[in-house]
């Protein structure tokens, strides 16, 4: 029970100290997220199982060697390993990812991602324009944090280093940026969905 609520970093520490139950908690915690991520790329349940297994074999070997130093970012690290294995899989099978029609996936929904139809493109452009104009109304420090986080996908640690402030300040700026954005959206009665 205690392990189930433990943070990833604690579980990793316990596992490297020999507590095998900690690994079970980690695997179960991220099973669905990791499997769904892999499946979204390979669209095959068996290959998903194989890549999931290979991913955690690498995780186990790295942790047992004491080579893990991701400072608490366990899931992004695991996703990166899985991503590399997915690329290896496509290289070995010498083919591009395939898309199948089914209840969950429609070929048209995937095609739509790459090239939006005229109506959706117009809506998408409008949303982008509206959002950009809203962001421009924010104080400059909040604009910076928002752009680095949302568009450049930087971590708060990286944002803090880049802007020369503490992580807490960067988090605070992000929080206020989102609060202000919500306020502006309400004031302008804008619905930002496509």
């Amino acid at each position: 029970m205690e392990l189930l609520q433990a943070k990833d970093a604690t579980l990793i520490q316990k596992y490297t100290q020999g507590d095998e139950r900690a690994l079970e908690v980690l695997i179960n915690r991220y099973n669905t997220r990791l499997s769904s991520f892999i499946y979204s790329k390979v669209f095959d349940k068996e290959i998903t199982e194989d890549i999931f297994q290979d991913t955690f074999v690498k995780v186990i070997r790295t942790l047992k060697r004491g080579k893990y130093n991701e400072e608490g970012k366990f899931l992004p690290w695991v996703i990166r390993i899985a991503h590399n294995l997915i690329i290896d899989h496509f290289r070995k099978s010498n083919r591009m990812p395939r898309y199948e029609m089914g209840e969950e996936y429609s070929l048209f929904s995937i095609m739509q991602d790459g090239s939006l139809n005229a109506e959706h493109q117009l809506i998408q452009d409008q949303i982008t324009e509206d959002l950009a104009s809203l962001i421009r109304q924010l104080p400059e420090d909040q604009q910076k944090v928002l752009q680095m986080r949302m568009y450049q996908e930087m971590s708060f640690k990286e944002i803090a280093e880049r802007t020369g402030v503490s992580i807490n300040t960067a988090l605070g700026r992000m929080r206020y940026a989102l609060i202000n954005l919500r306020r502006l959206i309400e004031e302008h009665s804008i619905v930002l969905t496509n």
């Binding site: 690994l23 499997s35 769904s36 979204s40 959706h120 619905v191």
Partner: peptide, 26 residues
């Protein structure tokens, strides 16, 4: 005036690795 946009739901499938795979890893 409120700006309305059409809404399309994202399509994805939740998948979970089997108990056998988890047991093998453990």
């Amino acid at each position: 005036m409120e700006q309305l946009y059409t809404k399309t739901s994202p399509q994805c499938k939740l998948v979970t690795a089997s108990e056998e795979t988890v047991r093998f890893l453990l």
